[in-house]
Design a protein around this nucleic acid. Structure first.
Lengths: 342, 342
DNA sequence: ATGAAAGCGCTAACAA
DNA sequence: TTGTTAGCGCTTTCAT
């Protein structure tokens, strides 16, 4: 690992000149530039990014805090974030908290303000906004990716996604197919993250005059297994459902499995629709109809917002941005309702 | 962002003492320690990890280079690596090269030696060992995770996995079920990464005296789509296969889909077996029988090896370690052969 | 038990 | 056009 000084010595100049050559700042004669470049080449010199970060007061690194890589959506999103970050010549530090608050705290402590210049936080039920506010107060730029509760807007910059509308879109697709007995499987607690998706669904049903009694919804976790279990319970209690709205793709896939377990054909016996459009959605059979969330766009917007916050010194009023509206993606898990399946 | 100096000023001591308190080095009186800790608390002080890295000559960060997050195995592996790294109090910098050599080079340049103390490289067909050797020559510790070509051992530290044996195990499972017409779908080119898996398969068949003519194998990409296409071609050419060996889970899932496309029941009409045991393997229907690769162990070993390389100053003879042997995981995609399906 | 001083590798004034 | 100087925040001898 050679240093600027060594390069300078070899080229017969001072480190400052080498720095100027490398950064393209200041005026340097062509002859000097070439000698310097040759020396860099010869020594295989690479700048020490730590030293640079130290003197510049900030590293060219952004951290992304995700709660779990087990949920396949997060890697997909992380990839999108990484692209957006690289585009701006930053590096991405991926911090997996593994759903462990202690882990999360440890990361925030360590990463905020020194290892990374700012922290992007993926939404999740357990995000403790308090901690993030404290981090922000310490001067660390924080941006929430994909906030989905319009009624609880946090005092932090965030990217909003209209999940209420996603719920509406899903419900309207089912209604348009003639379904009137539609159950719901929600991948969070009733007060949890997915509540607005469910509200959108309920609102659309109400608007259409289609009843949706409380026994036709199940709340649970955001996993395939939870979705399968919920669907088993739901279908046992209300066997004549012709369609199930699911608040996320992962539990929707669980619902697909439950249908298979029960010998129900999807979509002829039962239609299933999810939200998000993760890769798995078109890899399972039958391929899942879903409402695609613009996650690439959300990633790009989040990074863009982060850059703005950084520019503005992190003191400006917290701002936010909305992604474009989610889009229906029709695949093979939904179909026109049949007269009756008994 | 407060500094050591500020903490010291508040506590009425010099930065050196604060450092001693925080790092638990040197002797400090209890009274002083408490005052310092109180000041730290009051200011919300967090050490600047860049400065620390600079003075210590190396950051507490390890980089992981992966080629693509599109392949779901990589995030799973990245998670395991992250755990192993965190256990040793390091941070993980995830670098996704997106299968782009330029990206990879950019990462290696930037990360090696300053942003990260060492570089873990996930295996892939395109890993250009030359670049990595150059990096190592520049003094950057490099460890290859999961090397699978025993005949082309690189001049770099690596973790080996016996994929030949994985192929053997898969083949023997099929043979034990009575299959004698077994096709193969390989998720790489004939000279590519998966070749030893296929050799293992072939060796086991040969040993059992079961013929495997060249027209019963298809080579292709390591994706679901490639697997499906390969299976379509294979089953069109050789319709009376009763089982297909696939060199990886992702294309194996594609084979499952091809079977569904053709109206073949798995496993009654056709048995399918993969290798790796990614999460998807038990999420698809029918759940995939596969040979599980000890990837958590590989991650742990890779990080451990990295630590050793770091300790030994990166100059010692490249060493390597092998994971334990892959294990058969029987699920629902394999069954005893039927007499005949026509 | 604590302080003083030097320096990690780099950048950014300012001088020459 | 190039060199000099100072300093980013921290750790680490070596004194006291």
């Amino acid at each position: 690992m050679s240093t600027l000084v060594e390069v300078g010595r070899l080229a017969g100049v001072t480190p400052a000149t080498v720095s100027n050559v490398l950064r393209g700042r200041g005026r340097v004669s062509d002859a000097t530039r070439e000698r310097v470049l040759a020396a860099v080449q010869q020594l295989g010199y690479r700048p020490n990014l730590n030293a640079r970060a130290l003197v510049e007061g900030r590293p060219h690194t952004i951290a992304l805090i995700v709660s779990s890589i087990a949920n396949p959506f997060y890697p997909e999103f992380a990839l999108a974030v990484e692209k957006a970050v690289r585009k701006r010549d930053y590096f991405l530090l991926v911090c997996n908290t593994n759903n462990d608050p202690a882990q999360e705290a440890a990361y925030l402590d360590a990463v905020g303000g020194s290892l990374a210049q700012g922290v992007l936080v993926m939404n999740a039920d357990f995000v403790r906004v308090e901690e993030l506010l404290a981090l922000r107060r310490r001067g660390v730029p924080v941006v929430l990716c994909m906030w989905e509760k319009p009624d609880e807007a946090p005092e932090l910059p965030y990217i909003g996604v209209d999940f209420h509308q996603a719920g509406v879109i899903a419900a309207e697709h089912l209604l348009k197919l003639g379904h009137t007995r539609i159950g719901a499987v929600v991948g969070s607690e009733p007060t949890g993250n997915h509540i607005w998706r469910y509200r959108g669904f309920c609102d659309a049903l109400a608007r259409a005059g289609v009843p949706h009694p409380p026994e036709e919804v199940r709340f649970g976790g955001d996993t395939i297994d939870a979705g399968r279990n919920a669907a088993h319970g739901l279908l046992a209690a209300v066997p004549d459902l012709s369609a199930i709205f699911v608040s996320n793709d992962l539990p929707a896939i669980g619902v697909l499995q439950a249908a298979a377990d029960l010998g129900l054909e999807v979509p002829s016996d039962l239609s299933v629709i999810g939200i998000t459009d993760i890769q798995l959605a078109h890899q399972v059979r039958p391929a899942l109809t879903t409402v695609a969330v613009p996650s690439e766009e959300a990633a790009e917007l989040a990074v863009q917002l982060m850059m703005e916050v950084i520019e503005d010194g992190n003191n400006a009023v917290p701002r936010h941005a909305m992604t474009s509206v989610p889009q229906l993606v029709v695949r093979d898990s939904t179909a026109r309702v049949r007269r009756s399946r008994n």
